[in-house]
Simulated scan of single mutants.
Amino acid sequence: MEYNEGESANVVGWKLNHEAALIQHNRHSATSGILLESVFSFGLEAIRTTAILNGGAVIAVFAFLGALYGKDGSAIELARELLPAAFTFAVGALLAGVASGFAYFAQFLYSGAHDDVKLTWEHPYCDNPPSQDRRLRWGIFWHVLCVCAVLASYGCIILGLIGAWAALKG
Rank of each mutant, 00 (worst) to 15 (best):
F89C: 08
Y104N: 01
F105K: 05
A106Y: 08
S111C: 01
L109R: 07
A93P: 05
F102I: 03
Y110K: 03
L94Q: 10
F89H: 06
A85W: 11
S111F: 05
F102V: 01
L82A: 11
R80P: 00
Y110D: 10
S111Y: 06
T88F: 04
L94G: 11
F108R: 10
L95N: 08
F102Y: 14
A86Q: 13
A103C: 04
L109N: 04
A93W: 12
V98C: 02
L78Q: 09
A103T: 02
S100R: 10
G101M: 09
S111Q: 07
Y110G: 04
P84I: 00
F102T: 02
G101C: 02
R80L: 11
A85H: 07
A93I: 02
E81S: 15
P84L: 00
F89W: 09
F105C: 03
P84G: 02
L109A: 00
V98H: 06
A103G: 02
L83C: 01
F87M: 09
G92D: 14
Y104E: 06
A103Q: 06
E77A: 15
G97R: 06
A96E: 09
S100I: 03
R80V: 00
Y110V: 03
G101T: 02
E77R: 14
G97Q: 01
P84V: 00
F102C: 06
A99N: 03
S111I: 04
